[in-house]
């Protein structure tokens, strides 16, 4: 790419930046805070409930996350979750209910290409990277910790 073209692109990028409307940052921020906060409060309700019946904290955590994931899936099936996300933004995306939504939304969308080659292959099309990089990074830090504390063997 020659210099004149580069300059043209740079100038146009600037024009685009000026023409693009800014997001309502404050409104989005407040909505994300409230949406995420409310979802976590519901999570706390489950946590307090399961704390009584589960033997350990790790298990309470696991069951709470799973309960919220089930809730997220149901809300997605009923068509409520994309409505919530359009307003709550990251407040709906970041909780595990949002993770669950990515799985359910993909499953609903791609079942049209069949249950094996459609839904089966594409269910984790968005959630996949979360698992892959969660496990990869978790593996690395756990290994590091094991080496440092000498608990590998």
């Amino acid at each position: 790419m020659d210099k004149a073209q580069k300059d043209l692109h740079a100038r146009y990028q600037q024009m685009v930046k000026e023409a693009t409307p800014q997001p309502n940052r404050w409104k989005n921020l407040v909505m994300a805070f409230i949406t995420g906060g409310v979802i976590c409060t519901i999570g706390q309700l489950f946590y307090n409930l399961f704390e009584v019946i589960e033997p350990s904290r790790l298990e309470t955590t696991a069951v709470t996350q799973a309960a919220m994931i089930a809730l997220g899936a149901i809300a997605t099936g009923l068509g409520l979750y994309d409505w919530l996300a359009e307003r709550g933004g990251m407040g709906a995306a970041i909780p595990v209910t949002g993770f669950s939504n990515t799985v359910t939304a993909a499953a609903m969308e791609f079942k049209r290409e069949g249950y094996i080659l459609g839904m089966g292959t594409k269910m984790f099309v968005i959630a996949g990277p979360v698992l892959v990089y969660g496990i990869l990074s978790g593996f690395v830090v756990s290994l590091l910790r094991a080496v440092l504390t000498g608990s590998l063997f």
Binding site: A62, I69, A73, I74, G79, S100, T104, M123, A127, S142
Partner: peptide, 29 residues
Amino acid sequence: LFTGAFEITGLGVTTAIVFGGLMAVLFQP
């Protein structure tokens, strides 16, 4: 290090698959 990833999250991941699959059978986008 190899078995632990799904020790706690396995419950959630399986829930996501079971409920996600169920919703896909029941509802249309």
